[in-house]
Amino acid sequence: MSVTTDVTTDPRPLLDRAVAQLAALVAAVPADRLGAPTPCSEFDVRALLGHLVAGAHDGAELGEKGTVEWSRPPEGVADDGWSAAYEEARTRLIAAWADDATLTRPVKVEWGEFPGAVYLTSGMVLESVTHAWDLSRALGDPLPLDQELAELALGWAERFLPAERRGAGVPFGPVRSVPAGADAYGRLAGWLGREV
């Protein structure tokens, strides 16, 4: 598969890869790391897991209805229940976008209205890939990450979130420099304002 930022192609295979990668990382979270910090400063590991579960359900609702009432992170998930909670949300997300018609149907979110394919690319895949790096770093990088996904996500981030578009209403900090030789995930993280 060639690396491209073309959002007119079907993004569902990339979504499958991105959420499968996240599912493997969520399954690798030990209970004693749930309170650990992540590079996404607003979340520790437990809060990030809640955000991922809620985000997958929100993405599913957009596929099902075209609009969403934003979810709150789930409450009462047992320390050993996060993998099952994410797997349930991931399964719903994939099923919600199974119909080809969802790719061209508009979805409405707080930052605009887009064809479903654009939302999946610049929303769900980009967020899943970015948070995979956050979670991986918080856990000490237990699994190899899909570098092609990060190259794609970086291309979309540069296109949809240019460096000058930061500040009020944009949930990303200024672009940060990254160490020489940083991989695609490190470059993506720096573009989105994370310390690498």
Rank of each mutant, 00 (worst) to 15 (best):
Val3Tyr: 06
Arg137Ala: 15
Ser71Tyr: 08
Val3Thr: 14
Val19His: 02
Ala138Gln: 12
Asp79Val: 00
Val196Arg: 11
Phe172Asp: 12
Ala31Trp: 02
Gln21Ser: 11
His57Glu: 05
Ala96Leu: 02
Lys108Glu: 15
Arg176Ala: 09
Arg137Asp: 10
Asp146His: 05
Thr9Glu: 08
Leu62Met: 14
Asp146Tyr: 01
His57Met: 00
Ser177Trp: 01
Ala85Phe: 01
Leu154Lys: 15
His131Thr: 13
Glu127Ile: 10
Glu88Lys: 04
Val125Ile: 11
Gly167Cys: 01
Arg105Ala: 13
Leu135Glu: 04
Leu188Ile: 15
Leu93Gln: 02
Arg72His: 04
Ser177Lys: 08
Leu145Asn: 00
Asp100Met: 11
Val45Lys: 00
Leu152Met: 07
Phe160Tyr: 08
Ala98His: 05
Arg33Lys: 13
Leu103His: 08
Asp183Glu: 00
Arg46Glu: 05
Trp97Met: 06
Ala180Cys: 10
Thr104Cys: 09
Leu161Glu: 03
Glu75Val: 06
Thr67Phe: 13
Pro13Lys: 09
Pro30Phe: 04
Val196Tyr: 02
Gly112Trp: 08
Ser122Arg: 02
Val7Thr: 06
Asp32Trp: 07
Gly190His: 05
Leu149Cys: 11
Gly140Ala: 04
Glu87Gly: 10
Thr102Ala: 12
Ala182Cys: 01
Ala89Leu: 02
Arg17Trp: 02
Arg12Cys: 03
Leu34Cys: 12
Gly140Trp: 05
Ala150Asp: 11
Pro144Val: 10
Pro106Asn: 05
Ser122Gly: 14
Gly193Leu: 05
Glu148Asn: 08
Asp58Trp: 06
Asp99Cys: 12
Val129Pro: 15
Pro11Phe: 03
Gly35Ser: 12
Gly116Trp: 10
Arg187Val: 06
Glu69Leu: 04
Ala168Pro: 12
Glu158Arg: 13
Ile94Trp: 03
His131Phe: 06
Asp141Ile: 00
Ser2Trp: 08
Pro162Val: 08
Val109Cys: 02
Phe114Asn: 12
Ala78Leu: 15
Arg137Glu: 15
Ala98Phe: 01
Leu135Asn: 08
Trp70Arg: 09
Asp183Ile: 14
Leu152Gly: 13
Lys108Gly: 13
Gly63Trp: 04
Ala84Trp: 03
Ser71Ile: 02
Leu149Arg: 11
